[in-house]
Amino acid sequence: MEETIGVTEAARIPQQRGEQLLDCAVRYAEERHWDVLPGTWLEAAGGRELCSCADAACPRPGAHPARPDWANQATGSATAARRLWGKQPRASILLPTGRTFDALDVPESAGFLALARMERMDLTLGPVTRTPDRRMVFLVLPGGAPKVPDLVRKLGWSPAGLDLIARGESSYVAAPPTRIGGPGAVQWVRRPTQANRWLPDAEELISPLAYACARDAAG
């Protein structure tokens, strides 16, 4: 079973060095065949780190698309990725959803509870990330996001009552080692490996995720 990061473990936060970001972006495109997109980045200003978009109230500083036509800028070419991050080495790494994968985004507490249940059930899992704003993101097969509301209803819950966000077409997730709004960086809870190259369908994970989100909401 693949090792996971515990909720209280003091995992090492990777530094957001330009070379590391470039190398990771190229590796995601080259080894996983994921489309990658350079996003905004953090800039020092007056003793603070602000988003490069210049919005002091940016809701996701350092980790959102830098231009409105971002979907067309995303590339699955390692050569193009090297060129894009060569121009802006500090750019965050964003992965568009709805292409090679969709994403199920839940609170961190619910994510670890669901992950423990999934491992006991011996479910096939894909890569999973953990963000500094205490979210966990499970990668699933593309096309799964639109099915999630109906799947949740069939399990007896109201989609509006659960903090479970399904990200498909026209959305994205931030990839490690992107930093979001300060010292925290996106980390892998379950790293991309040869063993998890084949992703699960959203339907396979929705029951433990919905259950965990319902418990989290009740708590």
Rank of each mutant, 00 (worst) to 15 (best):
P38S: 04
E31V: 12
Y28N: 09
T129E: 02
V26G: 09
T178Y: 02
A212E: 06
P14V: 09
A57Y: 10
E119N: 13
L84F: 12
G86A: 11
S158D: 13
L125N: 03
A10H: 12
G144H: 12
G76H: 05
E203W: 00
A25I: 11
A57L: 13
D163P: 00
A174Q: 13
P127R: 04
P142F: 01
P61Q: 01
A110E: 06
T178P: 00
D216A: 08
A103N: 08
P59S: 12
A212I: 03
Q73D: 06
M136C: 11
E119Y: 02
R120I: 01
L123V: 05
C213N: 05
V189Y: 03
T124G: 13
W70D: 10
L164A: 06
A175L: 06
Q194R: 15
P107E: 09
D55N: 14
G181N: 12
E108L: 13
L209V: 12
E204F: 05
T79S: 15
A78H: 10
W34H: 04
L94K: 06
R167M: 13
V128W: 01
A160F: 02
A202G: 08
S92K: 05
M118G: 05
I93A: 07
P200N: 04
I206A: 00
G111Q: 05
P192Q: 03
T129Y: 00
A56N: 06
A195E: 14
G156Q: 11
H33G: 14
E31C: 06
T124Q: 14
K154W: 01
P176H: 08
Q20W: 11
A57N: 09
P68N: 03
A210C: 02
P146H: 10
I180H: 03
A103S: 10
V36T: 03
L141E: 15
E31R: 15
A11C: 06
S158M: 09
T131S: 14
A80N: 06
E43W: 03
L151E: 12
I165R: 14
C213E: 06
E31H: 13
D216T: 08
D122G: 01
A71G: 10
G126C: 10
L115W: 03
L141Y: 01
E204A: 15
D35C: 14
P142C: 10
L141H: 12
R190T: 09
V189N: 04
Q194G: 11
R32G: 10
G168V: 11
R197A: 15
G168N: 12
S171T: 15
